[in-house]
């Protein structure tokens, strides 16, 4: 039996939806890393999830609202951006079912966890750190890993690293104005010019809907339409993906 057949769609979905514990997650990550077919299936599922999220970002409103709501009154100012990003994802996404077949052909396109990262052994100079949780252990591990990588490689010279830290779901909290990690992030951003902090637009929208107010981010955070889209784009470009 092929290894790709040993990983079910249910397992890949559970991985995508953050339903697995560390051991199971590591198992799936390794399977994605090792098996091109599994990586393609995972990319497909990611694209679907992205598209569904974006397609209902601004549902049409009824002609008559029968319940007063302040939250309802606010229209998304970035409507154009949202639809443009959806177009990009759909266009790229549908193409992506093919493109993604090539993702892991490149040697540097590897999936790792922060605990596996050893700066001295890492060949890739383009790394994306993904954080989707506000679990202190995971956030600290992610920020510590970022610091180690930046320290080891420096901001200049032939070893110059390109590092992106992408936050979505609950992980968006690290980039919010009241984040307990804002000082660490500010410190990294001011010390190194080769690290970028990116905030997922979908997570921001969901937080806005849940809290009924605009979500304010620290100045170091850069808005992106969708974290998963950024991750897939970077993997396609040969970056190393590291799950925080």
């Amino acid at each position: 039996m092929k290894s790709s057949e040993l990983i079910s769609d249910e397992q890949l979905n559970a991985f995508l939806d953050n339903e697995l514990d560390d051991k199971e997650r590591a198992h799936i990550l390794e399977a994605i890393r090792q098996d091109k077919e599994i990586s393609v299936r995972f990319c497909d599922l990611s694209q679907i999830k992205n598209m569904v999220s974006l397609a209902y970002k601004n549902p049409p409103q009824p002609k008559q609202k029968n319940y007063t709501s302040a939250a309802m009154g606010r229209r998304e100012s970035g409507l154009r951006v949202a639809f443009a990003s959806l177009a990009l994802i759909l266009f790229g996404g549908l193409c992506g079912w093919v493109v993604s077949t090539q993702l892991l052909n490149q040697e540097d396109s590897t999936f790792q966890t922060v605990s596996q990262i050893k700066p001295g052994l890492l060949k890739s100079k383009k790394i994306l750190l993904h954080i989707n949780s506000m679990d202190n252990t995971r956030v600290q591990a992610t920020l510590e890993t970022a610091k180690k990588l930046l320290n080891f490689n420096g901001s200049n010279g032939k070893n110059r690293l390109e590092l992106e830290i992408v936050a979505n779901a609950d992980g968006l909290g690290i980039l919010r104005l009241n984040s307990p990690y804002s000082n660490q992030i500010k410190s990294l951003a001011s010390q190194y010019n080769n690290v970028t902090f990116m905030a997922c637009g979908i997570a921001k929208q969901n937080a806005r809907l849940k809290e009924g107010k605009e979500i304010e981010l620290i100045p170091e955070a850069q808005d992106i339409p969708a974290a998963l889209d950024q991750i897939l784009k970077r993997i396609k470009d040969g970056w190393t993906y590291v799950r925080g």
Binding site: P62, N66, Y67, S69, A71, L209, K210
Partner: peptide, 30 residues
């Protein structure tokens, strides 16, 4: 409840794709 109108409406709309029905379902829920 009012703060959750938009979220409930969005889910209701994704189920029925009819703005007025989604609004009615949301109102019934609240």
């Amino acid at each position: 409840l009012e703060m959750r109108w938009a979220r409930l409406y969005r889910i209701a709309y994704s189920w029925c794709h009819d703005p007025q029905l989604a609004s009615d379902l949301t109102q019934d829920t609240l």
